[in-house]
Computed example of a mutant assay.
Amino acid sequence: MHWKGLLTAAAFGPAAQAATMLRFSCSQLVVERLDPLVNPGQVPSPHLHQIVGGNGFNATMDSDAADLATVASCTTCTPAEDFSNYWTAVMFFKARNGTYHRVATKGNPLGFTAATGGQTVYYLSPGSQGSNVGGSGNAKVTAFRPGFRMTVGDPSFRSAAEIKKYPQLTYTCLQTSTTRGGETTNFPKAACKVGIMVNIRFPTCWDGKNVDSPDHQSHVAYPTGSGTSAGCPSTHPVRIPQVFYETIWDTSPFNDKALWPADGSQPFVWSFGDATGYGTHGDYVFGWKGDALQRAFDANCNSDLMGNNVNCPTLKTQTIQQGNQCSKKVTVRENLDGWMTTLPGGMTV
């Protein structure tokens, strides 16, 4: 997203938006080693994740049976009917002496400071503020079906050439809370005063048949073409919402260069052992109740870009403070605080 676009939207308000743009806070639900998509049933999974959303998250979430709206009893997200789960790997700081410290997330300073970590979640249609997929704002968008899930990115990637497959996975080095320029596909190389914002944008075209695929990616695709002429490929003809995460990792406690590697190289690593940043990835399992998400898109709902107002009368919402109260029993208990000699699970960098 570009700050110029945000300023324009804020100045003119929701009425100036021609398409759907839902933006809301999802506080942190749990941090643990579970991954029901890539490592279903495995307790613990190989690397650590941060999870937000409904408390129905578990080690096993079968696509044929999982309707999270009936499994979960609460959600950390502002829309009270959104029991979806959104998760990413966890960022660590690697000090000069070789020890690791987990980096915490924080609520987005643009309206969500009350959140206990987590991330900002967007649902976008073509033509909306922040949409990065092109196409006309008049394009019909079909909400996900129960059981739908997908991933984006590849944790094995370690090069700029590889990440070209996923150009919509980026980092923003926040020098101020309003920094939105200078996105990179690798970890920022300089200290970021406010933190590192990780941007994960999922594909927006669906094959119209499968709620999942063996690699959790083949049933979806990015549009082809550019600008308003961008459209879905014939293999994936159905427009779905663009799910977009902004996760702000509070790297400011680690900005002392005396702690950084002696050669001045950037010191952050992902929980799966990636020090380049090219392996960033995200996971998503749909869990909106009934037709709530479709109603929001049919109504062209638009959220405030500076606060926690979803601006969507058809949706039930809750406060950030209410979302903060939603919890899940920890399945994998391990010490994740303080300095560590190895990453959780013994992942190598």
Rank of each mutant, 00 (worst) to 15 (best):
P126E: 10
N255Y: 11
F24G: 02
T348H: 09
T319L: 01
A9Q: 13
V332I: 14
F144Y: 15
F92T: 04
S213D: 13
H101E: 15
P44R: 05
F244G: 00
L68W: 05
A160I: 06
A160R: 07
Y123R: 06
H236C: 05
F12M: 09
A11P: 00
K289Y: 14
P344G: 08
Y245K: 06
I240R: 03
Y122N: 13
K209N: 12
T99N: 07
T151Q: 09
T78C: 00
L169N: 05
F83Q: 03
S84D: 03
V133T: 15
G227C: 12
N55W: 03
G130Y: 07
A230W: 07
R33T: 08
S327I: 02
R158K: 15
V285S: 13
N300W: 02
F272W: 14
I248E: 08
P188N: 09
L336S: 11
I196T: 10
R333T: 15
T99L: 04
N255D: 15
G264P: 10
G127K: 11
C26F: 05
P40H: 10
C205A: 06
T184E: 07
A160Y: 06
I248V: 15
F144V: 02
A299H: 15
V121G: 04
C77Y: 01
Q242H: 00
A262E: 13
V152N: 12
T105Y: 07
E162T: 03
R333K: 15
H49L: 10
G13K: 06
G130F: 04
K164W: 01
Q119H: 03
F12K: 14
A230D: 03
D215V: 09
C74N: 04
Y278E: 11
G277N: 09
Y123Q: 12
G13R: 05
V121N: 04
D207L: 04
D250V: 01
I163Y: 03
G345F: 07
A72M: 05
A161I: 05
A10F: 03
E81R: 00
R145L: 14
S218K: 14
S234F: 01
P267A: 09
G231D: 05
V269M: 10
G287F: 13
G111H: 04
D62C: 00
D283L: 13
A9T: 11
V90N: 08
K328M: 13
R180S: 15
V211W: 08
T75H: 05
V243I: 14
Y171C: 02
N97I: 02
G287K: 10
F83V: 01
R180L: 14
V43I: 15
R201Y: 09
S128D: 10
G345D: 11
P126G: 06
W3F: 13
G279F: 06
S156Q: 10
S128W: 04
T185K: 05
A15N: 10
M1T: 07
N324T: 05
L259F: 12
A95S: 14
T116P: 00
V121K: 00
T247P: 06
G98I: 07
M91D: 08
N199A: 01
